[in-house]
Design a protein around this nucleic acid. Structure first.
Length: 216
DNA sequence: ACCCAGGGTCATA
DNA sequence: TATGACCATGGG
């Protein structure tokens, strides 16, 4: 069972997802930080607070008092640490000259720069690279590990970079890799959290003979 | 009253 | 290198 076949099965079941739910690249970046180990609905509430406060910009976030920023971020959980991380990211983002400047960076350098920010780890960086900068980077999250371990394609305990290499090389000959990786990650998440719970007999679940969110 | 959610950092051995 | 504690809200 190839990675492409699994993608086709997922796509056939769920259709196009059109991620990331963000109106601007900057909103995508904020969402990527706030969604760390957090349900997306709560992230939306936090972003809504920022919009209502007219604070959805790097400059405003950097200038905001930490306590007040934490209040805006409260619904997304971990609000104190996320306030720091978001400030760290926005400070770096401004220092590098903002979106237009970063667009000119080669993907490897951009990824390295993102990872240099305290609070931005590999998945957050790859979310930003793929969904805000349209770079062909495959996002590895807990759902990806679980699904493909059950499918028998990976062991599951591989390091992040190793898994990313496996997926990116496995799909190296695809025509539009940005579009493919974008949809693929979205489909993996949708499969895990929305449909898989309520449709025990979807094709992918039959494939792995285990349609349960919990479990190894 | 549990368990979990689109992780990451830091301290410890 | 590799585990574990910690961060904290809201939904099921």
């Amino acid at each position: 069972m190839s990675l492409k076949k699994i993608y086709n099965t997922l796509f056939k079941n769920y259709g196009p997802q059109n991620w990331w739910p963000g109106d601007t690249p900057f909103e995508v970046m904020v969402g990527a930080v706030l969604t760390q180990n957090t349900a997306w609905l709560n992230v939306e509430r936090a972003i809504h607070n920022l919009v209502e406060a007219n604070a959805l910009s790097a400059e405003t976030i950097v200038a905001a008092h930490p306590k007040r920023l934490a209040v805006w971020l409260k619904p997304s959980g971990y609000f104190n640490i996320k306030a720091k991380r978001l400030k760290n990211y926005c400070r770096w983002y401004i220092e590098q000259g903002g979106y237009e400047a970063l667009l000119g960076w080669p993907t490897d350098e951009l990824r390295h720069g993102l990872l240099s920010v305290n609070g931005v780890g590999p998945e957050t960086a790859d979310d930003i690279l793929l969904y805000a900068f349209d770079r062909p980077v495959f996002v590895i999250d807990a759902y990806t590990r679980r699904l493909f371990r059950r499918l028998g394609l990976i062991e599951g305990s591989e390091h992040y970079e190793e898994l990313r290499r496996i997926f990116e090389t496995g799909l190296r000959s695809a025509s539009d890799r940005v579009q493919l990786f974008n949809e693929y990650h979205a489909l993996i998440v949708i499969h895990a959290k929305d449909v898989c719970k309520t449709k025990p007999n979807c094709q992918v679940c039959c494939l792995i003979q285990a349609c349960q969110v919990k479990g190894p």
